[in-house]
Amino acid sequence: MSHYITPLFNTSLKIPLFSSSVAAGFASPADDHLEAELDLNEYLIAHPSETFFVRAKGDSMQQAGIFDKDLLIVDRSLTPKDNDIVIAAVAGQLTVKRLVVKLGKPWLYPANPNYKPIPIKEGSELHVWGVVVHAIHKVSNLS
């Protein structure tokens, strides 16, 4: 029985640059601990080409942590599932709703309990536009 040793190519090792100037005399003690900078895009956006920003307007959706004037990050590549906060096109308008699946049937629940939930029917003009993944607001705005 022969053994083949196959090299692994699917991992990579990144070596950080030594950034402090050697001419200064002493190397920075931090050079050995360099890491990449934190990128907020990377944290907030998983699928850049399918992610859109929209601006929320209207009554707050407190239980979902969404407030008037919030910047919402919407990922269209995600398949909407039960309890997701989604952007839906209702009567030609883009609106924020909660998607609820009851007995296998999808419903759009409004933030305001005075409005009725709307069923999503096959072939109707009403459709889910994208899944809201983050809401961004300035904390000082909330009082």
Binding site: A56, K57, L71, I87, L94, T95
Partner: peptide
């Protein structure tokens, strides 16, 4: 809609 902050699509919460 997709390239200027002041032009983002407005979505209504209701």
């Amino acid at each position: 809609y997709t390239t200027r902050w002041e032009c983002l699509p407005i979505v209504t919460i209701n």
